[in-house]
Amino acid sequence: MENKLAIDRKGTIPKTEGANLLFNLISYTVVTVAAILCLLPFEILISGSFTDENAIALHGYGILPSKFSLEAYRVLFKFPEAIIRAYGVSIFITVVGTIVGLFVTSMTAYVMNRKDFKYRNKLAFFFYFTTLFNGGILSTYIFFVKYLQLKNDMLALILPLLINVFYLIVMRTFISSIPDSISESAKIDGAGDFTIFMKLILPLTKPGLATIGLFYALDYWNDWYNAMLYITDVNKYPLQYLLFSTLQSAEAISRISKMASVAAISVPTLSLKLAMAVIATGPIILVYPSVQKYFVKGLTVGAIKG
């Protein structure tokens, strides 16, 4: 650190106050603009979903609704079963996938971190290799559908995301912050490896678990790609894929409107798409404030060690 302190003493230092003021001005402006840019798309989305269909056709989506209307939501909630079912699927895969993924990931990360495990580097490379080389979607698809017979099976949505090598590496970093002496002394006391992991290591890596858990949860919640490949049964669509198919073709929308017994002519397609997007994003925005702090904490711990 010392050598980095080599501040140029001959530089123009005196105007410290002015410089700090200027810095603050820049930093507050930049951060404010960035924050607005981050929020703006959401604002436009929400506003559009509450705009009257004809107003959109004539004036476009505004920053504020040019003519307020609840019609899109009314149509969606007239027959909410498709959405509720999609919610159910999304929640199911997110919960199961996150729990199993987190458990397997942290357990493996622990093994990879044990200094007395001879093959830990080989193990690491075994995992890392898969990020470099893969068989491509086609052979994976054939393997999943033909050999594992996972078509229209929830497992097809869960398996592909269950182990993420990047998270595995991050998790190992978390665990490496725990002193090795803990494992060693427990071992001397006669505890088994699995017990050590469950009773000692897991409780100590809570921020790490929270972070990686959220990563997994986000991956599952936001996944539409695997559903596109493996799910053909509309009743098994997760939320993001339902949204995607609504955007892709008018057919999905007309299905929703038929379920709701709304005549095609009065379906507000333009605002309906946006309303669907709002409904799909809603839970994340609602959960976000409460999970964000764990996330930041976990990332912070991980980064300091990493």
Binding site: A57, L247, S249, A250, E251, A264, I265, V267, T269
Partner: peptide
């Protein structure tokens, strides 16, 4: 544009 029902929708 992916909307192939614009005519029937009155759009």
């Amino acid at each position: 544009n992916k909307d192939d029902k614009m005519l029937t929708e009155g759009k």
